[in-house]
Write a protein that binds this DNA or RNA. Structure first.
Lengths: 260, 260
DNA sequence: CGTATGGTTGACCCCGCTCAATTGGTGTGG
DNA sequence: CCACACCAATTGAGCGGGGTCAACCATACG
């Protein structure tokens, strides 16, 4: 069954835990943001004066690389910063009173974690690295203070927060397992593409169990759906490496979930 | 079956479409916010000087009363304001490409609608009144500008946005129909209580179909679940008027949904 | 009245969950 | 280098919660 899969091996454009590649986002310096950073647009669009830029950079702390399984923050930790993922993948989750883990989301390079902590004084969830991860942390009090001086930054913060509100559509609706999985793949594909990675080939940093948990499916169902997609020629998959062979049909499947 | 229900009639503390009562929130003036308003806390906590208060009030426009079925805004309308509900109930929804309505939420007095529009320049959903509704609208550009001068207002806005992120837990998880319904009732109960209404008796302004749509259940299932709850002595219900007879057990049912 | 809309109830069935067994990859120690 | 253990992933069998379809009931309204 996996005979042709060997074509995938060694050609993935994403790093994996075993053979980490240099992240393409490694281009931040004193006057420029990392190109994949969620704040880079706020920066360029507004044409800030250098003093503001430097001020913004002063509150940034580059953290990592952290090995897989490292917690960036835990539920209940005092909220003080938000973080932009620079390389790798971060999973957020909560543990309910029965001890069951509940996956809330996966965060790729350029995406921001910790936003949901803003409403309280503590993080409402856990964030753990799924592979080797580097992040930039921004002190939120300082960020909010600076946002009062820089209208563009405030707008950007409002935008980031507001965008997150609609993010849960994938997981919220009552869709079939196939639709959910298709939407999940399309989402990953687009998000990778937006940051300059391949949209058709990438590594699923998360386990099948994590995917299942996130999509509110049983792990067995995820397995079966993926097998079906392979049989139908939609994807090729080997372990965690996946190639979208028929993006059009996958998007068609995901259409109603992503409401397009 | 509905024999004892007559005890409920005429004693509801909430208004209904047929017999509207005066909303308790009708207390806004030039220097004080409506007591149920989501912004009132930002106001009191910070002890603003009067000029700031007046400035804030200048951008507020009281709208209504609007009859049931009135659209406050529609998907695609240019985003320019957020609104706090003063009296009545507002439903937000989208229509997918197959023409199916998708209910996103219900907003009670004191709650804010339109926040999800901030990330774009147009509203991403529709908002329609379910009964006689009055709202206060805040011009968002002006609000954002003022927020730069008033730290407390900025914090309040961040908080409002951030809170909305976690709101979808009820609808997101894979819970049983009974758990969902219980959580829905608990949510309504608490939100009414927070604004000074009765927590055990209120009117369901929305139809069974709307509830079902919101909870991702079939209307038939909602009907069956409610009947079961009546049989079990959890609630008493007559049309849209409901009384929580055993809040403890209802909260127990909702426990895992609300993760407590 | 008749009609329309919303709500209730029953019969039936399917998708996805559960339980259980097996495979396969990876790491570890002898 | 192999044997073993361990965990992720897969596959099969069986079942049940909730959806669908359909008929019926009730209240509101012209």
């Amino acid at each position: 069954m996996m005979g042709r899969m060997s074509a995938l091996t060694g050609t993935m454009q994403q790093h994996s835990t075993s053979t980490p590649l240099a992240p393409i986002a490694d281009d931040g310096d004193a006057l420029h943001f990392c190109s994949t950073c969620a704040f880079s647009s706020a920066c360029r669009e507004e044409g800030y004066d250098k003093s503001a830029l430097i001020e913004l950079h002063c509150m940034v702390e580059h953290v990592g690389p952290m090995p897989a399984g490292t917690h960036v923050f835990r539920e209940g930790d005092p909220f003080q910063a938000i973080s932009a993922v620079r390389a790798g993948c971060v999973k957020t989750y909560v543990v309910d009173n029965d001890g069951h883990e509940q996956v809330l989301g996966f965060f790729l390079p350029g995406e921001v974690i910790g936003l949901s902590g803003i409403s309280g004084e503590r993080y409402p969830c856990n964030a753990v690295t799924l592979d080797t991860v580097t992040v930039c942390t921004f002190s939120f009090p300082k960020l909010a203070m600076l946002a009062r001086k820089l209208p563009g930054l405030q707008t950007q913060l409002f935008r980031l927060l507001s965008q997150d509100i609609g993010k849960t559509a994938l997981v919220a609706g009552d869709f079939s397992a196939d639709q959910r999985m298709a939407a999940f793949l399309v989402s990953l594909s687009r998000r990778y593409a937006a940051r300059g990675f391949s949209s058709s080939r990438f590594v699923l940093s998360m386990s099948r169990t994590d995917i299942a948990n996130y999509l509110r499916l049983a792990a067995e169902t995820v397995s079966r759906v993926l097998r079906r997609m392979v049989e139908d020629g939609l994807i090729v998959i080997d372990r965690r490496e996946i190639e979208l062979r028929d993006p059009k049909r996958i998007e068609q499947l995901a259409r109603s979930v992503l409401r397009e």
